[in-house]
């Protein structure tokens, strides 16, 4: 329980500081928003209040949590990069799918994405690769032609 509390304090501190940074940027951006003649408040008013609130509450959270943060607590925060690698790879693949969707087209992109992801997440086995190819192929064709023929929805 004690460990969990310490861990939470570190997370809170990081989140609080992040909010302060985002809030400051947002406040700066809000104060540069053009105003118009026919309304008193203007487009920057509420964003200014919101971002101001973020800065204040972010500071509050950081200060409140900073008290229980020490070196030991920081040491408890670790990020398991190796265990997360497949997931990260799949996310990158997904981004690649989005980036190339318009040039490569949906059919190839989606098929490659599903096949590769299944393979990666499944632990690079031969069986998983086959499963990925089968699932990816069927799914891609189903989605593409289902949307196109039944609903007249064009995918790139």
């Amino acid at each position: 329980m004690e460990a969990r509390k310490r861990q939470k304090a570190v997370l809170d501190l990081i989140f609080g500081l992040a909010c302060v940074v985002v809030g400051c940027l947002a406040f700066y951006a809000s104060s540069n928003v053009r105003t118009s003649a026919f309304e008193r408040l203007g487009a920057g008013f509420i964003p200014k209040i919101v971002s101001g609130g973020m800065v204040v509450l972010g500071l509050w959270l950081s200060i409140a949590s900073a008290r229980s943060v020490d070196r030991k607590a920081i040491g408890m925060i670790s990020f398991d990069i190796k265990g997360n690698l497949p997931v990260i790879a799949v996310l990158l693949l997904f981004a690649a799918l989005a980036a190339t969707l318009e040039t490569v087209g949906f059919r190839i992109g989606a098929f490659a994405f599903v096949a590769l992801s299944v393979w990666i997440l499944g632990g690079f086995g031969r069986r998983e690769l086959l499963q990925g190819i089968v699932v990816g192929g069927i799914l891609t064709l189903m989605v593409y032609y289902g949307l196109k023929e039944l609903l007249r929805l064009m995918l790139p």
């Binding site: 086959l130 089968v134 064709l141």
Partner: peptide
């Protein structure tokens, strides 16, 4: 079993390529 999977795979790929 594996043979059937392979057959399906080949069929799927053929259709995919034809569609392209």
């Amino acid at each position: 079993m594996t043979k059937r999977v392979m057959t399906i795979t080949v069929a799927v790929l053929t259709v995919l390529l034809l569609a392209l």
